[in-house]
Simulated scan of single mutants.
Amino acid sequence: MRQNPSFAMTDVIELRRLIELNPWVTLVSSTADGLVASHYAVLLDAARDDLTIVGHVGKPDDYVHGLGERELLVVVQGPHGYVSPNWYGDTASVPTWNFVSAHLTGVPELLTPDENLEVLDQLVARFENGMPQPRLLWERPNDPDYVRRLEKGTVGFRLTPTRVVAKRKLSQNKPDEVVETIIRELHAGGGTYADPRLAGEMRRDLDTRKAAR
């Protein structure tokens, strides 16, 4: 991802927030057979306060990616969306696409079966706890044998990135009044390109920049 200093995202707290809110990531590896990409959910490692993530892949994706043997690129995609030139006012302009994204690169560490079970448990809890009646991993009708068989079909990993490139392109190069217009348009429920999540990120970024002046 080409970096632009105006849009660089380097704050660890903000990057952790991005990962926490957007756990469905793309895993990319360069192999002898070419590039390979897979999609899985990850979590921040609860025992760390950096950008270490944990997750799992289903077999044989561990073999396909050469998991633990070579670099893995993890693409975290936050809110993103189209910005119309009409929202800039009566001035020469072209469309653009606003987005928040991070690339985490490193060689992952493979987890033991017990560690993998813990991660699987955490993943289920992370998403089921938003349900009215959560069904956690170890609860009936699942039994311990079923859960352990499930674990054997997956390979867990922990990745502490050695390289991070992150970008938050949210119209920071535009005047505040133009950014306010874009936010309003993105909030417009009837608009073709309405996206409240992206509008929320832009509002948060704009307010932070204003407070820092």
Rank of each mutant, 00 (worst) to 15 (best):
N4M: 06
P5H: 08
M9S: 15
D11E: 10
I13R: 12
E14H: 13
R16M: 04
L18M: 08
E20D: 08
V25W: 06
S29W: 03
S29K: 02
T31M: 06
A32L: 15
L35A: 14
A37T: 02
A37W: 05
I53P: 02
I53D: 00
I53M: 06
V54A: 05
G58V: 10
K59Y: 07
P60Q: 09
L67G: 12
E69I: 03
V74G: 12
P79A: 09
H80T: 04
P85S: 10
Y88W: 11
S93Q: 09
V94D: 04
V94K: 01
P95I: 04
N98Y: 12
S101R: 07
H103E: 13
T105R: 08
T105K: 14
P108Y: 06
P108I: 01
T112S: 15
T112D: 01
P113E: 00
R126T: 10
F127V: 00
N129A: 12
G130L: 06
P132L: 12
Q133Y: 11
P134Y: 07
P134Q: 10
R140T: 15
R140P: 15
D145M: 08
Y146S: 10
R149K: 14
V164L: 03
A166I: 04
K167Q: 02
S171G: 03
K174W: 00
K174L: 08
D176A: 15
I182N: 01
I183V: 15
G189M: 12
Y193L: 00
A194N: 05
D195C: 08
L198P: 01
A199M: 01
G200Q: 10
D205I: 04
T208K: 00
R209D: 09
